[in-house]
Amino acid sequence: MNKQEFISAVNKFDSYTAAEKRIAAYFMDHYTMLPFAKIDELCKQIGVGKATLGRFLQRLGFSGFIQFKKEVSDDLAQTLTTPIERYEYHTHEPSQDTIEGLLANHYQETIDNVDKTFNGLSEQDFKSAMKLMRHTTGKLYVMGSASSEALATYFYLLARYLRKDVVLLKADISTLPHQLVDVSKDDVLLAISYHRYSSITIKLVRWFHECGGHNILVTDQPVNPFVSYCDVQFIVESAGRGFFNNRAAGFALIEAFIKGLSLHQEKDNRFKRIEGLFDEFSVFKS
C-alpha cells in the first residue's frame, strides 16, 4: 500500500473517531518511516492505545500492524531514496530552477529547515542532553556514517577543546569492537543518522543501550529504528530539492551542543594545551 492508496482508503470511511483522525494524520505525515516503527512507541507518539490502532488497521483491511508494515515496506522499496534514484528521476523531469535562482532557492530551503527544526525542539530535551554530555565520569562517544560522518567529526574536533575523553567512532566494522571494548554504563553516545539509516549505527545504539550506557540521537524522522534505545532524541529537518538532502539544520544543532558544552568550567587548560600543541607541530601558518 502506497501513501495515496492509504489516503484513498481512509477517505472511504463513513465516519471517524477523534483517535482515528489522529492516527490518519500521523501516518500521512510520517508514512515513509512506518516500516521502522514499533507499535508501543508509535501508539505513545500518537496518543492512542494498541487496541485502537488495531481496530483502525482492521478497517483498512489488515489483520494487524505487522501486515500493514510489510505492505508499506514493500511499496517504499520502490520510492526515490538514494542520490542515484534522484539523479535518474531529475534526468527525465528537468528542474524548474535556473542557475540565477538557485542560490536564493537554496537559502530559503535552508532557512525553512532550520526554522522548522528549532521550532520543534524541546528545551528540556536540550538540557537533558547537555547534562549527559557534561557527565565527565564516563566517556563521550560520537558516531555518524555516510553524510552524518561530517557532523560527527565537526562535533568531535570542537568538543575536544571542552572536555576530556571524547571518542570519535569510525564506522569500520572490523575495528569497531576495538574502539568499544572499554564502554561502561557511565558512557554516553551521540549518534547521528539520517534516513537511509546505517545498519552499523543501529547496532551500535542498541548495543550501547544493552550495556547500560546513554544514547543521544540526532536524526530526521521521529519514527526510526533507534527510538526505543535513546534517552534523548532530536529531529532535524533535511528536505532538499536536489540530488542530496540538506544537512544545514543538523549542523546548526551540533553547534548548539558545542555552545552548551562551552559552559563547562574546566576548559581553560585544555584550550591552552591544544593551542600549544598546534604551535609545537606547526599546524597553522600565521
Score class of each variant (00 low, 15 high):
residue 188 V to E: 04
residue 132 L to H: 06
residue 103 L to F: 12
residue 145 S to D: 12
residue 217 L to G: 04
residue 117 T to D: 04
residue 33 M to H: 05
residue 189 L to W: 04
residue 96 Q to T: 09
residue 127 K to E: 14
residue 230 C to I: 02
residue 269 N to S: 12
residue 163 R to M: 08
residue 164 K to G: 04
residue 203 K to T: 11
residue 281 F to T: 04
residue 284 F to G: 03
residue 219 T to P: 07
residue 51 A to E: 15
residue 147 S to R: 01
residue 166 V to L: 05
residue 280 E to K: 14
residue 242 G to I: 00
residue 16 Y to W: 15
residue 83 P to S: 01
residue 54 G to Q: 05
residue 192 I to V: 08
residue 42 L to S: 02
residue 262 S to R: 10
residue 125 D to A: 10
residue 92 H to R: 07
residue 50 K to C: 11
residue 23 I to L: 09
residue 16 Y to N: 13
residue 191 A to C: 06
residue 106 H to L: 10
residue 209 H to F: 14
residue 23 I to D: 07
residue 189 L to F: 06
residue 76 L to I: 01
residue 136 T to G: 09
residue 117 T to F: 05
residue 34 L to E: 04
residue 77 A to M: 08
residue 45 Q to E: 09
residue 66 I to F: 08
residue 220 D to C: 03
residue 202 I to R: 12
residue 123 E to Y: 12
residue 93 E to D: 10
residue 78 Q to F: 04
residue 11 N to Q: 14
residue 252 A to F: 14
residue 33 M to D: 15
residue 111 I to Y: 14
residue 187 D to A: 01
residue 161 Y to K: 04
residue 80 L to A: 08
residue 45 Q to H: 08
residue 57 L to K: 09
residue 267 K to V: 10
residue 82 T to M: 06
residue 72 V to F: 07
residue 283 V to M: 10
residue 199 S to I: 02
residue 244 F to A: 08
residue 225 P to M: 02
residue 60 L to N: 05
residue 96 Q to G: 11
residue 177 P to L: 00
residue 238 S to F: 05
residue 11 N to T: 12
residue 83 P to C: 04
residue 93 E to A: 06
residue 123 E to M: 10
residue 230 C to L: 05
residue 277 L to R: 12
residue 208 F to T: 02
residue 53 L to I: 02
residue 10 V to Q: 07
residue 230 C to N: 05
residue 30 H to C: 09
residue 99 I to Y: 15
residue 113 N to L: 00
residue 109 E to D: 08
residue 39 I to H: 06
residue 267 K to H: 11
residue 98 T to F: 06
residue 167 V to D: 03
residue 10 V to K: 05
residue 242 G to M: 01
residue 2 N to P: 13
residue 223 V to I: 12
residue 249 A to W: 02
residue 265 Q to S: 15
